[in-house]
Simulated assay, not measured.
Amino acid sequence: MAAIVYFRKILETEELVEYEFGDDPDDFRRRMTMDKTSCTSTVQDAQIDYTFLKASRKLNALHTERGVWPERGMSVS
């Protein structure tokens, strides 16, 4: 069974980056905040599930690889 999560940046400040994410790129229903200093994430609905963890890990990997927080993306496994 494949799993997919899409994400899109909606806000970036000096301290944090906020993303919306979900399994439908046309209908994001959830949001997460990435702390730029610690690279930790917090999900706004407090549901720490596979979709949230998958998006968070992909965002951190892309940030590490590119040195910037991505505008949008996806993770498939």
Rank of each mutant, 00 (worst) to 15 (best):
V17N: 03
I10H: 07
T33K: 15
Y6T: 08
E20S: 12
R8S: 08
R29M: 15
D24I: 12
E15Y: 14
Y19V: 10
E15A: 12
D23P: 05
P25L: 01
L16C: 10
G22M: 03
R31D: 10
F28W: 07
L11H: 14
P25C: 04
E18Y: 07
E15T: 06
D23Q: 11
T33P: 01
E18S: 13
F21I: 03
M32P: 02
R31F: 12
Y19M: 12
P25M: 08
M34A: 14
E20M: 11
K9D: 01
L16E: 10
T33W: 00
V17W: 05
E18K: 14
Y6A: 03
E20C: 08
D26E: 10
L11I: 10
D24T: 06
D24E: 09
L11K: 15
F21T: 02
K9R: 13
F28S: 06
F21G: 06
F7V: 06
I10F: 06
F21R: 04
L11W: 11
V5P: 03
K36A: 08
Y19A: 09
Y19W: 12
K36V: 09
R30G: 06
Y19T: 08
E20V: 13
D35W: 04
F21E: 02
E15F: 11
M34D: 07
G22F: 03
R29Q: 14
K9E: 12
D27N: 15
T13H: 04
M32R: 02
K9M: 13
D23N: 12
R30L: 08
E14T: 08
V5I: 11
M32C: 11
D35H: 07
M32N: 04
R30H: 15
Y19N: 02
F21S: 05
R8Q: 13
E15C: 02
R31K: 15
Y19D: 00
L16R: 13
D27K: 10
R8G: 08
Y19G: 08
E12C: 01
D27L: 12
V17A: 11
E12F: 05
P25W: 04
D26T: 14
K36P: 09
T33A: 09
K9V: 03
D26H: 15
P25Q: 03
T13Q: 07
G22V: 04
D27P: 03
D35Q: 10
E14G: 03
R8L: 14
I4P: 02
